[in-house]
Write a protein that binds this DNA or RNA. Structure first.
Length: 542
RNA sequence: UGGGGCGUCGCCAAGCUGGUCUAAGGCACCGGAUUUUGAUUCCGGCAUUCCUAGGUUCGAAUCCUAGCGCCCCAGCCA
């Protein structure tokens, strides 16, 4: 249905899907995005969300939003809420209803009993330290637990006692019985269930044993009839267990084939930011930022407040692609995607961020004119607005200099520039902090005389009398170095608040994106004005 | 030094059932044109080379062998 859209380039996952569809293994695909509700979603998750939902859309399938809530000690409803909000904001269609791993706890437990009775799992009563010790090393095979040979009836009653709260945390753990000597450490009898007398944010105190991710995830996928289960590279070693488990359960009649297939891709790495929940939590709790949704945070909630758009993120995901090679993407790619999108949707406005006064000495005192200003020069259909012009204007401090460097074509003594959409003015001097000019009355924009005078420079302005003063937040990157590792690398100038002068009529917009001409893209939200990203500036290189 | 992955232009990334590859595309970069945003847009340039070394073949980024480099795995986290 979106065939008219630019066909995205091929990638290895699409090839697998296309082959599965062609062979008839699946008639319809289903993917899923499975966050753990233990933090806010960040830019890295956006890649995964856009990938999973994007594939579903492209192939006419579906994608589930499923919370992997198997560890009650770390998870909270507040995180669930923020995640749902971010996923919706990204435009992902998950059918309106989020799913939860905890909804399958009963079934997972049933599967556990089956594994026990079929001799594929046992209750181990070693301490965590003993288990660790007996697991061995990379080069040293593990050794069997003393409890590995318990009878299935003993295992079953122990498992039930665990479930019924008869044992303390850590007293026992249910383990898969595979091979303690496997070269793949993940196959050395991985833990399936642990005792955790904790209250779960959804199931309350119903359970005191909780499934491990390793065990729960494949079952979640199978129950939901996921066809392609996409995850990041670090789970590659887990895939043999994923398949082992599912096949055992399918053999036992608990699951139907075809079983889901786990496919791994490289996670997103971005320069100038940290994308690990652990470090992000540190920033929040250490008070280095104003919370998870601080506009400088690489969270989706933060990105949104910064003025980043879902569409910009989509372009970004498309641009970086998907593969198994580790990617390190320069942050400027993301910024560029935002510019690309914002350039299309943001109406243009004038704002002076660092104001100094300009007086047109030969412009009649008290006179005012309304200038016709296009809302978007490349989109005449967006119409024009009228902006008041008068004798005293605010202009940008940077647009005047006493000693112009070579190639400078803004205001300097004797120089002529155009006040964008107004008149051409000639600079007569600078006294008492005020730039003094004279204007050429016949050069009003939109009149034939406008083209008679050619100027290089073109600067924006706001009439002093009509200006709307506002605090504008100029955001820059949170970290000053390319590969930050800790709070020491925070950029001290990541936020600067300036007293700006905006053209009238800009104050009461809600989550609206605008371009301040010659500055960049900003988002106005309930009186708060944030800079999303600057415009490209090839002059700044000089 | 066990197991699993990855290695194509500065950054991504197609290609990988061998020839149409003197290697697509994007971003960056460098020109040049348009422009009342030093923005946007436009046009042109940008890997005889595919981690290295051998081999197979009439022919290899694509197959084989041996190296080298990087990442991941020893939670009752996900």
């Amino acid at each position: 249905m979106n065939k008219s859209h630019t066909p995205s380039t091929s990638n290895f996952i699409k090839q697998i899907i296309a082959a599965d569809l062609a062979s008839g293994k699946h008639v319809k695909i289903r993917t899923r995005f499975p966050p753990e509700p233990n933090g806010y979603l960040h830019l890295g998750h956006a890649k995964s969300i856009l990938l999973n939902f994007g594939l579903a859309k492209e192939y006419g399938g579906a994608c589930n939003l499923r919370f992997d809530d198997t560890n009650p000690e770390k998870e909270e409803q507040a995180y669930v809420d923020s995640i749902v909000e971010s996923v919706k904001w990204l435009g992902a269609d998950f059918g309106g209803k989020a799913l939860y791993a905890s909804d399958y706890f009963d079934f997972m437990y049933q599967c556990a009993e089956h594994l026990v009775t079929s001799g594929n799992a046992y209750v181990d009563s070693q301490s965590a330290d003993e288990m660790k010790h007996n697991r061995g090393f990379f080069t040293k095979p593990g050794v069997d637990s003393l409890f590995r040979s318990r009878s299935s009836s003993e295992n079953l009653s122990l498992l039930r006692e665990m479930r019924d709260g008869k044992h303390a945390d850590g007293a026992h753990v249910l383990r898969a019985k595979i091979d303690m000597r496997s070269p793949n450490i993940n196959l050395r009898d991985p833990a399936l269930y642990r005792i955790k007398k904790a209250t779960h944010h959804r199931t309350g105190d119903k359970w005191c044993i909780y499934p491990m991710y390793t065990y729960a995830h494949p079952i979640e996928d199978a129950v939901e009839k996921i066809t392609h289960s996409l995850c990041t590279l670090e789970f590659e070693d887990q895939r043999p267990f994923y398949d082992w488990l599912l096949n055992k359960l399918a053999d036992g009649g608990l699951l139907q084939r075809p079983l889901p297939q786990q496919i791994e891709f490289a996670r997103l790495n971005l320069t100038h930011v940290l994308l690990s929940k652990r470090l992000l939590i540190k920033l929040v709790e250490g008070g280095h930022v104003d919370g998870w949704d601080d506009p400088r945070m690489p969270t989706l909630a933060g990105a949104r407040r910064r003025g980043y758009t879902a569409d910009g993120l989509r372009r970004f995901a498309e641009r970086i692609g998907v593969s198994k090679a580790h990617q390190m993407i320069d942050y400027s790619i993301l910024e560029d995607c935002m510019r690309e999108h914002l350039n299309e949707i943001a109406p243009r406005r004038m704002a002076v961020l660092d104001p100094i006064k300009l007086v047109i000495e030969n412009y009649p005192e008290g006179q005012e004119e309304l200038m016709d200003v296009p809302n978007h020069p490349q989109k005449p259909e967006w119409g024009k607005r009228q902006v008041p012009f008068s004798r005293e204007l605010w202009i940008e401090r940077d647009d005047y200099t006493d000693s112009p460097p070579k190639g400078y074509f803004r205001l300097a003594p004797g120089a002529t520039v155009r006040l964008r959409y107004g008149y051409a003015v000639k600079c007569e001097g600078y006294h008492n902090g005020i730039v003094r000019c004279t204007y050429l009355a016949e050069t009003r924009s939109g009149t034939p005389g406008a083209d008679a005078v050619k100027v290089k420079g073109n600067i924006h302005w706001v009439s002093v009398k009509h200006a709307h003063a506002a605090q504008v937040h100029l955001y820059d990157r949170l970290f000053k170095i390319e590969h930050p590792e800790s709070v020491e690398h925070l950029n001290p100038d990541s936020i600067k608040t300036v007293s700006a002068q905006l053209e009238p009529g800009l104050k009461d917009s809600k989550e609206s994106h605008v371009q301040f001409e010659r500055h960049g893209y900003f988002i106005c939200d309930d009186g708060r004005v944030n800079r999303t990203v600057t415009l490209r500036d090839s002059w700044a290189k000089h």
